[in-house]
């Protein structure tokens, strides 16, 4: 087995250059690469294009990189939880490409799967369709959408082994498996890094072939956006 372990987030992201295109896993703040984001803020990399379903909140997740003006462009489906994001967007400091969530997920999957384009009905007849090829299949209209790929994919898993096999937990899986496939270099941070052989091959969600670097993250905050409970 190939050992892909690096010692920490700073080492993992050391060669992410200014103006790179990144994919960052997560849905809201669930399953985001907290350690890699913190390391990017420390490194001060700028001009980044970030492909991520959301843009974090003002003081966590990708919001931390927006505050420091490290992000040039966001490619997302929903950005409603971030006032600084909205401010930068309305003043034109930040470029934003809003994409239907299923189309975003499939474009990333296509990027990793070597499918340059596909047709989907989502967005037909809307602003999203502007400039796109339209074709009818079985009488229903579809849009041609192209793949997305990135210089680096930053993903977060629950467990991983040193050869890069990953296991996710709960709804923290979300965009992470497809992004792991679509990065030229995929960096996985995990809550628990184990030796090769300790993961049951039947239970691996993302095979290690997609992952180039892996490390055990530390100090996971795993912030909750809408803590909703019921009385016993």
């Amino acid at each position: 087995m190939i050992n892909k372990e690096v010692s920490n987030a700073d080492e993992a992201i050391h060669d992410i250059a200014d103006n790179s295109t990144l994919m960052l896993g997560g849905f809201g703040l669930c399953g985001i690469p907290e350690n890699c984001i913190a390391a990017l803020v420390r490194k001060g990399t700028t001009g980044l294009t970030c492909i991520s379903n959301n843009a974090g909140v003002d003081d966590f997740g990708i919001g931390l990189m927006l505050k420091t003006r490290q992000v040039k462009k966001m490619i997302s489906s929903y950005v409603g939880e971030n006032a600084e994001f909205e401010r930068q967007l309305l003043t034109g400091e930040l470029e934003v490409d809003l994409i239907p969530q299923g189309t975003l997920a499939e474009r990333v999957r296509a990027g990793g799967a070597g499918i340059p384009a596909f047709f989907t009905p989502a967005g037909y007849g809307t602003e999203v369709a502007e400039g796109k090829e339209v074709r009818a299949f079985d009488g229903k209209m579809h849009l041609l959408e192209s793949w997305l790929r990135a210089d680096f994919a930053l993903v977060k898993a629950w467990k991983g082994d040193k050869s890069g096999n990953l296991v996710f937990k709960g709804t923290a899986r979300n965009f992470n498996p497809m992004m792991a496939m679509a990065g030229k270099i995929t960096i996985a941070e995990v809550e628990e890094l184990v030796e090769v052989g300790e993961l049951d091959p039947n239970q691996v969600h993302t095979p290690g072939i997609y992952v180039q670097r892996i490390f055990q993250g530390e100090g996971y905050e795993k912030r909750i956006e809408q803590r909703t409970t019921r009385i016993k």
Binding site: F27, G28, L29, C30, G31, N53, E81, Q101, G102, A105, E106, V108, R109, W158, F168, K169, G170, T171, A172, R173, N174, F175, N176, P177, M178, K222, R223, I224, E225, Q226, R227, T228, T229, R230, I231, K232
Partner: peptide, 30 residues
């Protein structure tokens, strides 16, 4: 969830904490 069941890794599309049920399944966004 009840307070002690809250799991940051288990939310709905509105980002609220939820629980699973017997027979639930989990999968990727794609």
């Amino acid at each position: 969830p009840e307070e002690e069941q809250v799991d940051a890794d288990l939310i709905n599309a509105g980002k609220q904490t939820v629980t699973t049920l017997p027979g639930s399944s989990l999968f990727s966004s794609s």
